[in-house]
Amino acid sequence: MNRKRLLPFIVPISILLFWSIITHFHFVSKLFVPTPIEFVSALLLLVFSGEIIGHVLATLYRTLAGFLVACIIGIPIGLLMGYSNRIYSSLEFVVEFFRSIPATALFPLFLLVFGIGDESKIALSAWSAGLVLIVNAMYGVHLGKELRLKAAKTMHVSGLDTMTKIIFPEALPQIFTGMRVAISLSLIIVVVAEMFVGTTYGLGRQIMDAQLVYRVGEMYSYIFAAGIVGFILNKGFMQIEHRIVHWKGK
């Protein structure tokens, strides 16, 4: 039992050891990898000076805004595509094609259309998260049971009631799976977009700036912060998912 509890720590501690050894004996240049001590002191400095908080909040805001827009647009489209063969046939090719374009390849275009401010970053993350949500909501409907629809049909349930009371809850477990993927993707897109233009705030911007002036301790700190943000978003979402789609797999 006690041994099992230790398992999650073994690999991180090994990495830390390995890291200490290669930096201590100068196996790699200090320009690429700081010592663990340098990293931790840089991180603590950023945290206690409060400097990092603004950047975390800026990135978090863009990520969540993009994600929210994606949910509002993507989920209804996906549900309709799953429900109606006509809508599916009209949209399937377009969705598959857009999904095949690397979202970051569209960033210059989004800059042209939405300008260099927050809008273009949010729009791009909404775009890529939205496509993921469309596909998952659609699968959610397709994975639903025919029989529940047949049961609804025998009771002459209206189209709207069928959608809100049967198809939507039926697709919800798959929608949540999609949401978890989408929110991670949204964070990735935002961090990459921040590296280019249009902001002095955001983790992506800070990682880039620190790298340009070789402040590696700081650079690693911001990378670490981005990791923490992603980790918390994912874990938090799993908690919500567990509560809301309690019937999943039962």
Partner: peptide, 14 residues
Amino acid sequence: GFVFQNYNESMMPW
């Protein structure tokens, strides 16, 4: 009123 053999797939688990 229809009652199906497969209650798991005709009723609403949520």
